[in-house]
């Protein structure tokens, strides 16, 4: 392939991934509201369009038309930088997540990932830790006590959960022997899903993912009842929408990462034995990736409307005294497995 061809193909991929995520994010907000309503025996939004299907667009237009308020005491530059950082981090992470195996279209061999880099997981970790800066910036630059408290909580939370997250990923990497997301997916062929091989690591990563995305039960940076919204107290209009979008985009990333690392990515166990046509297999595999991500997203929302928020000290306790040792045990477990079977 020539340089131009690679450029065009990559641009098309970026366009597809970006529109896909933006659409998913907006409908995730819709489903969040719907599922919360169902869990509380309500109906949820059902006025705009059929069953409220156009609600996300109505929300966006409302937010666009709102006045953008910047507090007097705020540091104006950083105040407007924070939501940009949040969005940037949220959307760039998709670049390395593979949604399917390589496909042949018009004679080109195309991998279904925007950037197939061999340090993909490292890239994801680097970017997700950058996401803390968005929240800390927002908290600090707003010039409000509540926002500052939210920002501090966020950084403390991230530090304690990134460690157990890193160690759980280390378990995966021991098995796959590569940081390339595609290689990690391929190492989980058949029923050798990491969720089955290392269930403890799966649970620690899952819990850390909740903490990383600031979702309930770990949404202490927001904590509406105590912090009036935490880091985004002083945000309005599209800047607030930026944080809002970033939160849901992070949720999708977390789900996609869990799928890639622990649930076998796009793979369906033993699908090659059915003897289907190649293109059909690919379609099924891409579909299975989306179904897995979708189910995880539902689980994220479901958890939110079932479990109350942790107290700050409980959160720290779980992070350092439970999750961290558990992820170490998982690492040892994987090492023992490799010792025995290799």
């Amino acid at each position: 392939m020539s340089l131009i061809e690679i450029l065009i193909i990559t641009l098309i991929k970026i366009l597809i991934i970006l529109t896909l995520t933006l659409l998913t994010v907006s409908y995730l907000v819709y489903f969040e509201r719907k599922i919360s309503a169902w869990a509380q025996n309500r109906l949820g939004p059902n006025r705009v369009g059929w069953e409220g299907i156009l609600q996300p667009f109505a929300d966006v237009f409302k937010l666009l038309l709102k006045e953008d308020i910047v507090p007097n005491k705020a540091n104006k530059v950083i105040h407007s930088l924070a939501p940009m950082v949040a969005l940037f981090v949220a959307f760039t992470t998709y670049a390395v997540i593979p949604i399917g195996p390589n496909v042949q279209i018009f004679g080109y061999d195309i991998s279904l990932v925007v950037a197939d880099i061999n340090i993909g997981i490292l890239y994801v970790l680097a970017l997700t830790s950058l996401g803390v800066y968005a929240i800390t910036f927002a908290g600090w630059s707003s010039g409000s006590k509540y926002s500052l408290l939210g920002g501090i909580r966020s950084s403390a939370q991230m530090i304690s959960y990134e460690i157990s997250m890193g160690f759980s990923i280390a378990g995966v990497l021991l098995l796959s022997e590569s940081l390339r997301p595609i290689a990690i997916v391929e190492s989980q062929a058949g029923w050798m899903w990491n969720a089955v091989v290392q269930p403890i690591g799966f649970i620690t990563f899952f819990v850390s993912a909740f903490a990383e995305t600031n979702r309930l039960p770990f949404d202490l940076p927001e904590a509406e009842p105590e912090l009036v919204g935490g880091f985004h107290t002083e945000y309005s209009s599209m800047k607030f929408a930026g944080f809002f979008l970033a939160e849901y985009a992070n949720m999708i990333i977390a789900s996609a990462l869990i799928t890639t690392l622990y649930l076998g990515g796009w793979q369906i166990p033993y699908i090659e034995k059915l003897g289907l046509a190649d293109w059909l297999v690919t379609v099924f595999q891409v579909g299975s990736f989306f179904i897995k991500v979708g189910m995880l997203l539902f689980f994220f929302i479901w958890i939110r409307w079932s479990i109350p928020r942790f107290r700050y000290d409980q959160l720290m306790n779980i992070g350092w005294k439970v999750m961290f040792p558990l992820s170490l045990i998982n690492l040892v477990w994987v090492a023992v497995l490799i010792m025995i079977f290799n």
Binding site: I35, W38, A39, Q40, N41, R42, L43, W302, I303, W305, S306, I307
Partner: peptide, 15 residues
């Protein structure tokens, strides 16, 4: 807890 909320999702609505 999750089972409880899921059961409620399937119940008839009060709205």
């Amino acid at each position: 807890g999750l089972a409880l909320t899921f059961k409620n999702m399937l119940k008839p609505k009060f709205t």
